[in-house]
C-alpha cells in the first residue's frame, strides 16, 4: 500500500491532489424498502478484513509522516445499492466490495417474499458509509 502511494506521488504533478475513497468499517444497513420507506432492516458487519483497513490507514499515516502529502479534508457520504431480488444482490456482492459482507441472504429473501406476497412493491437496499479524503502533494 505504501508502494501504491509512492507511485501516486511519482506520477502526480507538483501540488497535485490525491483522493482516497473507500468504505468505512461501520456496519452496513440492509433494508427491504417499499414505495416510500424501509419496511424491514438489519445491520450487518460489512468488513471482515480489519487488517486491510488498518494497513491502508497505516500507509496513509506513513505518507503523511514522510511529508509526501498534506491532509486537506475528509467528508463522509452514504452509498446506496438497490436490487430487486436476493439473487441480484448475491451476484453483485460476489463481484464487488460486498464480497466480505455477512449478508443474511435467507432471512432477507424470506422477508422480501412475505412483503411482496402481501401486495407491496419491494426492493432491497444496502446502505454503507464511505469516506472521501483529499491530500495535497508537498
Amino acid at each position: 500500500m505504501v508502494d501504491a502511494l509512492r507511485e501516486a506521488r511519482r506520477v502526480l504533478k507538483p501540488h497535485g491532489v490525491l483522493i482516497d475513497v473507500r468504505p468505512l468499517t461501520t456496519p452496513m444497513l440492509i433494508e427491504v424498502v417499499g414505495a416510500t420507506r424501509a419496511i424491514w432492516e438489519k445491520e450487518v458487519d460489512a468488513c471482515s478484513t480489519p487488517e486491510d483497513v488498518a494497513a491502508a490507514d497505516a500507509a496513509i499515516r506513513y505518507a503523511l509522516s514522510e511529508e509526501w502529502f498534506s491532509f486537506e479534508r475528509s467528508s463522509p457520504f452514504s452509498l446506496e445499492i438497490y436490487c430487486d431480488t436476493v439473487t441480484d444482490l448475491t451476484a453483485y456482492a460476489e463481484t464487488r466490495h460486498l464480497r466480505e459482507a455477512a449478508i443474511p441472504y435467507e432471512e432477507l429473501e424470506e422477508r422480501r417474499r412475505e412483503l411482496a406476497a402481501s401486495g407491496q412493491t419491494v426492493r432491497l437496499r444496502c446502505r454503507r458509509a464511505w469516506m472521501v479524503s483529499t491530500y495535497r502533494m508537498n
Partner: peptide, 10 residues
Amino acid sequence: FNVVLLASSL
C-alpha cells in the same frame, strides 16, 4: 497527472 483518485484501492 494533476489528480490521482484511489477508488477503494488502498
